[in-house]
């Protein structure tokens, strides 16, 4: 069962590409039988009562940490989610309590002090109060608890170009503890800028992915060669961030990715709400994870073809 996730990923991507459906339909279109097409339709949807949305995390890096509070909106709303100001936001690790301040110029963004950092092994508790989302005149309180797992530093990464998929594949060499059940998230930076910048571009795996705790060049992240970030120059630095995450956050990321993949009756079941970890009916996620980094330098003359 070591690499089930890997297989599922490969199969999932094939299914995502809908290559079989496309091929069948291509054949039908080829002979002029199907006009399988898409078309915009008017759809009247109900709107659910608005709810608080929490988006924030604690990592083991000492830095200013941010947390965003907003409200849910109707599905077809043509504007950004309204932010929630004036809340009291506290993060506690059971020993110290950090009080977050709201940014003056960006309402809804709350920040910690610059020397705030999490410690692996501790559990971080979030408390949000002094907000009235349902506008009933009574203040509500929301809480969340997130344990901060540890992560081991990766040894190295390599990069390969895959013609079939037209992607740059990032391959990881690392070791981890095979005794424990661990979950990882991978994100990419190019020259210090995060390029996996939405949840759909995060890559999450369980350690079943590792062979007895060893990763010997496994494919963990990709850069689309068709995008701007897929064009490299001499000296570009590609950095892989490896995060130790909880199973709960792993499930959350997977669910978001599944929901935003598109619904086709051949392969999808009924859509479902993404599971969060905030109390009192609030949406979103408060996560805690530890991070480590490994980089490589791009050289123009080097052979990046598949080995």
């Amino acid at each position: 069962m070591k690499n089930l996730d890997k297989i599922l990923k490969v199969v999932g991507e094939k299914i995502n590409k809908n290559s079989f459906i496309n091929q069948t339909l291509t054949l039908f279109v080829f002979i002029g039988l199907a006009s399988g097409c898409t078309e915009t339709i008017e759809l009247e949807l109900e709107t659910a009562a608005k709810r608080l949305v929490v988006d924030g995390n604690v990592t083991n890096e000492q830095k200013m940490h941010f947390l965003r509070l907003s409200e849910s909106v109707s599905f077809f709303s043509d504007s950004a989610s309204p932010t929630v100001s004036g809340a009291q936001v506290l993060i506690s690790d059971g020993i110290n309590v950090e009080r977050l301040s709201e940014a003056q110029d960006i309402p809804g963004i709350y920040y910690t002090s610059e020397n705030f950092g999490g410690v692996p092994g501790r559990t971080y508790s979030l408390s949000v109060s002094n907000v009235d989302i349902d506008e009933d005149g009574e203040m509500e309180e929301y809480t969340s608890h997130a344990p901060l797992p540890d992560v081991s530093a990766p040894d190295s990464i390599t990069m390969e170009f895959d013609e079939g998929w037209n992607v740059w594949k990032i391959l990881l060499y690392a070791r981890e503890n095979p005794e424990t059940e661990d979950y990882y998230m991978f994100r990419l930076f190019k020259n210090g800028t995060l390029i996996s910048n939405t949840i759909s571009e995060y890559s999450v795996v369980s350690d079943k992915f590792f062979d007895e705790g060893n990763a010997n060049g496994i494919w963990v992240q990709s850069i689309d060669a068709g995008q701007e970030s897929g064009e490299f120059e001499e000296g570009d630095v590609i950095t892989l961030q490896m995060c130790g995450i909880t199973e709960e956050y792993f499930d959350f990321v997977q669910a978001v990715q599944q929901e935003n993949r598109g619904q086709y009756p051949l392969f999808s079941g009924p859509p479902a709400n993404v599971p969060g970890n905030i109390s009192n009916g609030a949406l979103g996620f408060f996560s805690a994870f530890s991070v480590s980094y490994v980089s490589l330098l791009y050289h123009e003359g080097e052979d990046y073809s598949e080995k």
Binding site: T47, R51, S72, V73, F75, I199, V256, E259, N260, P271
Partner: peptide
């Protein structure tokens, strides 16, 4: 029946 935003991504409700 609704939508919200986490980490730059829209999530349907």
């Amino acid at each position: 029946v609704g939508r919200y935003e986490v980490d730059g991504e829209f999530i349907p409700l």
